[in-house]
Write a protein that binds this DNA or RNA. Structure first.
Lengths: 144, 144
DNA sequence: CTCCGTGCAAATCGTTTGCACACAG
DNA sequence: CTGTGTGCAAACGATTTGCACGGAG
């Protein structure tokens, strides 16, 4: 969580109420919201905001290193945590959770990359079933 | 590369010329083709085939474990190599290459997953610049 | 005053779906 | 024969774009 105004200025951009609201909401969001979800939340604070602005701002945040875009199945999700980490994705409810771990950042060095490939970032995604869905699944099979 | 006819039957499906062609082409493809690319290639062998059939068949192959779907930025790419491995993705030309490595499969155990999360598969993607694009980039800056 | 960022609506792109027919089993 | 897989075209969801205006600097 940095001073957005200062950050934006350093990157040659302008500060707006929309950008502040989007960044605030993204930082405060518990999960890893999609652009649409973020849009819904931000609209409570900036009623007239448009979805395109949310996309624009998110792209700016990603390009300037303040956020990370997690793309995979379905709509992309966004994350502000900028230390290297992986994600889990529930195959049932598609929730994304963080996997803070030094292993992730150390990984790059261990991989035998194609000759000449210049690595920039490593992302790790663990697909599976989240605790919540596993619990419900167990209940369901108990009920049946 | 398995006997597709037998595999499909074991999974309760039917064998068709389209499915055979798609699987053949996917196995023979050097890179990691998108559905669209695959469609173009398969059309040379089965001129009347439809893109929907390519999507259907790919989904079947993925569901039955004969192929892997690599989704991320842009269109999804497909891969037949079924031993655990990671991928590199060039940020410039978006080429996807394989990273065969035991580290990837061993990774799951080392990560501190959220409590209760049941892992199913681990995917690793290294973003960066591929050798080809790096070479061209170097040339370009030399020229300038 | 100058442009960058915005809002809106339409366009685009990848993928899925509904339907009638064909052909594998 | 029976029902699954096919081809087509239309629908769909996520994201991008073009354009004119408004507000930050």
């Amino acid at each position: 969580m940095v001073d957005l105004r200062e950050h934006v200025h350093r990157c040659g951009g302008r500060m707006t109420a929309q950008r502040e609201a989007i960044y605030d909401v993204l930082c405060a969001a518990s999960g890893h919201p999609t652009a649409e979800e973020l849009f819904m939340l931000v609209r409570e604070r900036v009623p007239g905001i448009s979805l395109a602005t949310v996309y624009n701002t998110l792209e700016m945040l990603v390009n300037t290193g303040l956020a990370v875009k997690i793309s995979g199945e379905g709509p992309a999700r966004y994350d502000t945590m900028c230390t290297p980490h992986g994600h889990t994705r529930c195959m049932h409810c598609s929730t994304v959770e963080d996997v803070p771990d030094a292993v992730v950042s150390a990984l790059g060095a261990d991989l035998s990359l194609p000759a000449g490939f210049i690595p920039w970032s490593v992302s790790v995604e663990v697909k599976g079933i989240c605790a919540e869905c596993a619990r419900q699944g167990a209940e369901a099979s108990t009920d049946a």
